[in-house]
Write a protein that binds this DNA or RNA. Structure first.
Lengths: 335, 335
DNA sequence: CTGAAAGCGCTTACAG
DNA sequence: CTGAAAGCGCTTACAG
């Protein structure tokens, strides 16, 4: 358990710590062959591996980034994280994952902790409540990238999907199939999270584009436990919707559960499209039409943007911008 | 961007670094009230936050653990990780997540990297190929916990589910429903991963327990792309199975896809039970009987075991043991 | 009750 | 081509 340090290697190889350090950092320019060999052998014999914490302290970089996500249990987040992890791993970065559960206080605490740990940058699925904190980070030139969500008044690189187009694809599909009374159920808008707001606005715009009237009773949003009641209320309308767009995967779960319980036939009684390409879409009965987000591409892009900022350091005076990714309609049998 | 250090705080407060350090570590025993106040104020004014990397180097602990998982995209892993993260967060630990994709080489590299970063311990969903490496870690007294899988010849704390019981529950349910020709399809056994092996053995034992013959053509295993062909082959038997147990969620996906395409009725043409309580089990048509693993409890336990080892240090001479968690049958309509 | 000094394990000018 | 020295930002005996 006695840990081997660079000094041990140096002593064994009969050289100084500096030289061992040069060796480790592959600065071989002026190193004699025999010196090299001896160091190599000493490292081998002692089974030495360098202490990254010491290196990090000295170099002021940890080769670690933080990712703050709403909840890793959400498929979308998991896929984005996996892509981030892969991209980071290629460049020998590690990632610390934190679940903020959409609680601004937790988010702030995580950001502070991650900074104290000197992570080289942070990718966050932001809540909308820490504007000042984000702007402080940006002012310092701290590498930061948003994913999935934008926050107004925070001018930062953001990787998000084209939410209006997402909804337009779904509405277009419904229209093509001849449905006119098209409803949408969204998760809670209380926090004004940008994808939800954009999807809601996209819904209104898409209806207008297709020359359909916007009917407020066909649009609902709320916490997950209110999804089924809201849906039930729509169904009970004098003129109930013929088609329903589920604002994300969790909403879709609720809708499918309700439809099953009430023995509604899909798409005869109610046509359904889900946003997020759920794992069972293909083999559900009926198979489910969905609009897929390019989660892996988004995660990869976010990692690339962050790593670029980290490499460029202060000098990276590129203006941050919003990177929109295009969704894909997966046409199946529920619409 | 000029970073504030403890020296800055000390100067501003007119005390020494030592005293500031005492303050930060809440060693107030002998500290004068005015000193305390002045340090507090200096920290406030300078917006100082301590550098954890420096502290880690000095104290030889990073308050960070590593989790090496086969693939974070797997629901089981995600849930376990979430539980681990929650438990760690409570004790101010952070977690670095790594995807080894069941590749022993990647796993080894991650372990070495994590150690170089001086993480205080590692939780791993192990492949079976790095026995020596694991034993080296244990010999050093390095905190290590296995989850989901055991590895023979490695005597370490492991948190796993009772796989034989899992299968017994499923077979018992089939028997209760009057099925006699019960088949099972498993993911590849090539790597001899313990849950798969145990499930296979559990299958044979359960059949024997219930007085049913074991018929080799009712048992298949292989890479995911061979699941459907294997299932097709069973169905084509002269006396095809009446009931099928899917060895995990991915196998279940394949089976459901096949059943749908071939328009098989569930459970009339084939009764199905899945291991792992998939998200859509409740509202699938028909709803799916599954055997659920207590993923969150398992993750929590793994974190607790690891954190305990970390706290106890070398002194923790408790004999490592295997912690088995009990599965639950979720009786629904597919069986 | 507080401070000076040494040290954690590296890296990096700089000297020779 | 290689080594001595300083320093990254903390913590921790120890002295007073």
């Amino acid at each position: 358990m006695a840990v081997i340090t660079m000094a041990d290697v140096a002593k064994r190889a009969g050289v100084s710590k500096s030289t061992v350090s040069q060796y480790l950092n592959k600065r071989f320019d002026y190193m004699g062959e025999k010196t090299k060999k001896r160091i190599e052998q000493a490292i081998e014999e002692l089974d030495y591996s360098p202490n990254f914490v010491a290196r990090s302290l000295r170099q002021k970089k940890t080769m670690t980034i933080g990712v703050i996500v709403a909840n890793i249990l959400h498929d979308f987040s998991t896929q984005v994280i996996r892509a981030i992890e892969d991209a980071c791993h290629e460049q020998d970065f590690h990632v610390i994952v934190c679940n903020a559960d959409d609680e601004p206080v937790k988010e702030r605490r995580y950001i502070e902790m991650l900074r104290a740990k000197q992570v080289d940058g942070i990718i966050v699925f932001p809540t909308s409540a820490n504007v000042t904190l984000y702007n402080d980070l940006l002012r310092e030139g701290y590498p930061l990238v948003f994913v999935d969500r934008m926050v107004s008044k925070v001018n930062v690189n953001a990787v998000i999907s084209d939410n209006e187009e997402t909804v337009r694809l779904a509405v277009g599909e419904f229209v093509a199939k001849g449905y006119e009374r098209i409803a949408m159920v969204l998760p809670s808008l209380e926090q004004q999270l940008s994808p939800r707001v954009e999807r809601m606005e996209g819904y209104k715009k898409a209806l207008a584009e297709y020359g359909l009237p916007y009917c407020p009773s066909y649009l609902a949003s709320g916490e997950i436990e209110y999804v089924q009641p809201a849906f039930a209320k729509m169904i009970a309308l004098e003129s109930p919707p013929q088609a329903l767009l589920a604002g994300n995967d969790l909403v879709l779960f609720e809708v499918l559960e309700y439809a099953k319980r009430e023995q509604m036939r899909i798409p005869e009684d109610i046509a359904i499209i889900g946003i997020d390409d759920v794992s069972f879409a293909n083999f559900y009965n009926p198979s489910l039409t969905t609009v897929a987000q390019p989660t892996f591409e988004m995660g990869k892009k976010a990692a690339e943007l962050l790593l670029k900022q980290i490499k460029n350091g202060e000098s990276s005076q590129e203006e941050p911008c919003v990177h929109r990714f295009q969704p894909t309609l997966k046409r199946r049998s529920s619409s």
